[in-house]
């Protein structure tokens, strides 16, 4: 995790780009007269993609270079290694998204409650998105594959969160929707953009948090498979 911080902060050009690019996407959208439903969808998609790419690409790059194998060879628990790196990715992603988040908060004059919900929802989405990115990285064989898998899974989860459609009440999709880690982000952004805040924030957060904990466990177990990654030719 320390290395993630050092690398992230040392590579100032990349850090600057990763800070400016979300801002450059967010600004024209929220300053336009686009309908709130479109603004909400675009912002959620943007944040979801940003979180998954942030972890999958560096992990695949380190796998390809052999650096990840070097880390594992030090005797570090590989599951713990990927989780620690995920925390580092989340922290860096969050720092890089702060300007874009501030712009959203101030543009829509968000209330304190809505702002707090937004920040917590962004953190949860970043954690879930980065875990998805890590999982995508463990099955991808190239950076291109990793980007494809992670963005595909993220977009599907965004869809399942109800961003693009309204599920029929009581249906399987409506039930599933409540578990998706990107749903609190969707509800929080929609609340800020429309000015209508959700009432049951605890109910909104509970199931996505449980789902994210499940993702943490799956990622830990998947990380264990990095223990010995190659078979010797007999």
């Amino acid at each position: 995790m320390k290395a993630e911080w050092r690398v992230g902060l040392r590579n100032r050009r990349l850090f600057f780009l990763n800070t400016v690019i979300p801002l450059a996407f967010v600004a024209p959208i929220i300053l336009s007269n686009a309908p709130p439903v479109h603004v909400t969808a675009i912002l959620v998609v943007l944040f979801a993609l940003f979180s998954t790419f942030g972890s999958s690409i560096p992990l695949i790059r380190d796998q390809e270079s052999g650096l990840l194998q070097r880390y594992v060879m030090t005797g570090l628990n590989p599951g713990r290694l990927v989780l620690e790196r995920t925390v580092g990715f989340v922290a860096i992603d969050f720092l890089q998204l702060i300007p874009a988040m501030l712009l959203i908060i101030f543009t829509y004059s968000s209330t304190l409650g809505s702002t707090l919900l937004f920040v917590v929802a962004v953190l949860l989405s970043l954690l879930a998105g980065n875990l998805v990115g890590v999982l995508a990285a463990t099955i991808a064989r190239s950076i291109a594959e990793g980007a494809l898998f992670s963005s595909g899974i993220a977009l599907y989860l965004v869809h399942l969160a109800g961003v693009f459609r309204v599920a029929s009440g009581g249906s399987l999709w409506a039930t599933l929707e409540l578990w998706i880690p990107f749903r609190p982000l969707y509800i929080a952004v929609r609340g800020i953009v429309t000015g209508i805040s959700p009432t049951d924030t605890m109910g909104l957060m509970a199931l996505p948090i449980v789902a994210t904990v499940g993702l943490v466990l799956v990622t830990y177990l998947r990380g264990q498979m990095l223990s010995i990654s190659k078979k010797m030719n007999s």
Partner: peptide, 20 residues
């Protein structure tokens, strides 16, 4: 993991974090 902590291995291709 305990075995690995007792081993120091340097392969034929050095791999590092170039920005550090």
């Amino acid at each position: 993991q305990e075995v690995r902590r007792k081993i120091g291995f340097a392969g034929d291709h050095p791999i590092h974090l170039p920005s550090l």
